[in-house]
Computed example of a mutant assay.
Amino acid sequence: MNLRGKKIVVCVTGSVAAIETPKLVRELRRLGADIFCVISKSAKGIIHQDVLEWASNNKVVTRITGNVEHVKLAGNVPEKADLIIVAPATANTIGKIANAIDDTAVTTFVTTALGTGIPLIIVPAMHGSMYKHPIVKENIAKLKRINVSFMQPRVEEGKAKFPPVKSVVETISNSLAEKDLAGKTILVTAGPTVEAIDSLRYLTNKSSGKTGVWIADAAVVRGAKVILIRGPTKVEPTQQMRDIKVNSAKEMFTAVKKNSKAGIMIHTAAVADYTLKEKQGKIESGKSFSLKLTPTAKILDQVKKWNKKIFLVGFKAEYGVPEKQLVESAFKKLKESKADLIVANDLKKKTGGIGHNSNEVYVVDRAKKVRHFGLMHKKDIANKILALVK
């Protein structure tokens, strides 16, 4: 994440969760953002403005003065902030924002920002019963209707607690990300498939689905409309998308065919190569038995037949082969499937791949040009791939 050059206003209200705000401000500064803090009178009873000045390296706004701070940072001026976040936000402040009441420095900043069109994120933090209050819920819904973003608090011990600072930073970064995939529809597949042996047992593989799910999340952040078709993945998508869950290779095949009118498809799913006829009930244990496996249809090889114009990205895994052979195998798969890109990796490498959060991949295009992305987090690989399809 890189927030260099971004101007962010962090507003603090009178929740005890305000003790988390200096940590948030420091993390944002580490990513290069220029931070300006605004604190309410109630919040000053919980944290001192000096700690926010230390964390932000800027003077803290405690009241609106003749310098019209709200206009300089949130008004319709060239130097206005890129984003405003209220973290934490009390039920009282949320109610005031929802009704355009600006009787504190925080609410005046927010009212000005909403009129200007500056993105606003609100991080509620309060006692659980207050968070469940029907009018508080109504105020949150009212603000969501005008595109105000709300972070989900950690609900535990009867309280709606401040989310992990890391999650808040990620939400801010996502909000400020370039929307270079706006207007595009991307179909992503992820995870393994499950082929039933009997009513209890099944055949599957070790795929975690992390790469596919994180590609889908990253595509939404970058403005795309995403359709995710996935088997039983180890991770869940965090962004809003159409999420279609399947089990078998046949179900995956049907779902992909139905949604193949997308402009881009990234097929990361580790679809089973073989299936079998399910036996109803439970096969008796303690005895030998045989399974008759039949090959499944190769989804990647069918996609261009369904949609000739789709930009198609496939994945190819090998085990313990030299780099040259890995690339040749990827290029062969590209030609067979008429794909535009094939992403290849070696499963034997223990530093990444299946089940890990990191991987090392080679991307081969139609001209046989090879891009090597060394060992990195799969979320970074997701964005590398999306940069090639936009």
Rank of each mutant, 00 (worst) to 15 (best):
I46L: 10
S173M: 08
I385P: 00
I146E: 05
K338A: 15
V16Y: 04
G263C: 03
I64N: 11
L28I: 06
V226R: 06
K384W: 00
G355H: 11
T238P: 00
T171R: 11
G231E: 02
V213P: 03
S167T: 06
E360A: 10
V16M: 09
K304P: 02
I140P: 02
F311T: 11
G231S: 05
L31P: 01
A344Q: 04
T90S: 14
V271H: 00
F36S: 06
S149M: 10
A98D: 06
K282L: 06
S175T: 12
L388D: 00
G281H: 00
A177Y: 03
T171G: 01
T108H: 06
L334T: 11
T233G: 09
K305H: 10
V148Q: 05
T254S: 10
W54F: 14
R242P: 06
L300F: 06
A81E: 04
K378N: 14
E360S: 15
G212R: 04
K245P: 11
K179T: 01
K309W: 01
L276P: 04
F311D: 11
N58D: 12
I122R: 12
I229R: 03
K166R: 10
N259P: 07
H267D: 10
D273I: 00
Y131C: 05
R201I: 12
M130V: 03
K332T: 07
G231K: 01
A270C: 03
T193W: 01
A382K: 01
E69T: 11
H356G: 05
K349G: 06
S42V: 06
T296C: 12
G32N: 05
I197L: 11
A55T: 13
G263I: 01
K348N: 14
A98F: 03
D346T: 08
S260T: 00
D50L: 07
A17E: 10
W214Q: 15
Y202D: 03
V364I: 15
K368C: 03
K184R: 14
S358A: 14
V188C: 02
V361G: 00
T93N: 03
R366E: 06
S149E: 15
A339Q: 14
R145F: 02
L326P: 13
L276V: 07
M252Q: 03
K304G: 09
K368W: 02
H48E: 15
P237G: 08
K261N: 14
M151E: 02
T351C: 08
D365L: 11
D243M: 09
G115N: 13
H356Q: 12
H356P: 09
L3W: 02
L276S: 09
L83V: 08
E178A: 13
T351P: 08
K245M: 08
K6G: 08
I264Y: 01
H267M: 07
K250W: 03
K166Q: 15
L176Q: 05
R63G: 08
Y202V: 15
D34G: 09
T193C: 04
K245Y: 12
G75I: 10
A100K: 12
F109R: 11
A249C: 09
N383W: 01
M151L: 15
L300T: 00
A190P: 10
L114A: 02
A89N: 09
N57G: 11
V321A: 12
K333V: 08
K349I: 14
L293G: 13
L143E: 05
